Simulated assay, not measured.
Amino acid sequence: MNVIWSFHWKQGKRIAILAIAMLLFAGVLYAEVGPSNLISIPTASTASPGAIYKVQTDQKVVALTFDISWGEKTPGPVLDVLEKKGLKKATFFLSGPWTSTHPEIAKRIRTMGFEIGSHGHLHKNFSQYSNDWIHDQVKKAEEAIFDTTGVKTKLIRTPNGDFNKRVLEKLHSMGYTTIQWDTDSLDWKNPGVDTIVNRVLSKAHPGDIILMHASDSCKQTVEALPRIIDGLREKGYEFVTVTELIAGTNTRSKAE
């Protein structure tokens, strides 16, 4: 019995000495770096907001998205293709000035049941401007879209897809979710219809957000779109809005 007690006492003594040493070290560290400089581990409540590129899912669903910032020759035919193909789920990101100057097309997007998000006001990189400027731009677009379509936007795709951590935090504080993409069709480069189609069909994956455009600068989108829709359907994909995609799966996002 005495042997057992001696072993426990020696073990306890070692633990006590180790604990005191750790406390002394922590005290020295606190005194040197100060409470405000100690490293903290981010939690769900403190993590910075991110931009959503895709979602993690095993379901064969994709979100087809279109940016529109100018023109009247391409948007209508894009809508005609979607209508002809019976595709009822897509998300359009509209700029404020375009919405105000093309109200009939914007209203048609709404009437057809497609989701509408914001593409900002002026097509300039948000990261190069102040938070006040960003606030003004977002509000101008928000008001233009609401006045024309009755939609209060909650999703935003920044002009040129440009953002940084500060921009994300500002948009989040305004109640917006920043949406990017994981598959870029490159239709904005007009690389050729076959190139656009093959790029989307080869890169699309479950939970993908696909970037396309319906501005007049994209001259090959209308011809490529039917083949993209048919090709994705042949692969077993269904089309959903961005909001449905986010709501139905685990979001995969990035913060920059």
Rank of each mutant, 00 (worst) to 15 (best):
S6H: 09
W9M: 15
R14T: 07
I15A: 15
L18E: 11
Y30C: 09
T43G: 13
A44H: 06
T46H: 03
G50P: 02
Q56W: 06
L64M: 09
L64I: 05
F66N: 10
I68V: 15
E72L: 07
K73A: 14
L82H: 05
L87K: 03
A90M: 03
F92L: 11
S95W: 04
G96I: 02
P97N: 08
S100L: 05
K107R: 14
T111R: 15
F114P: 00
E115Q: 14
H119G: 00
H123D: 03
N125S: 14
F126S: 02
N131K: 12
I134L: 06
V138G: 06
K140G: 04
K140Y: 11
D147G: 08
K154C: 06
T158Y: 03
P159Q: 10
R166S: 10
M174R: 13
I179Y: 08
T183I: 15
D184E: 04
D187G: 08
W188Y: 09
G192D: 03
G192C: 06
I196A: 03
I210N: 03
I210F: 01
S217T: 14
V222N: 01
E223Q: 14
L225F: 08
G231H: 07
G236W: 10
G236N: 07
T241N: 01
V242K: 06
G248M: 08
K254G: 12
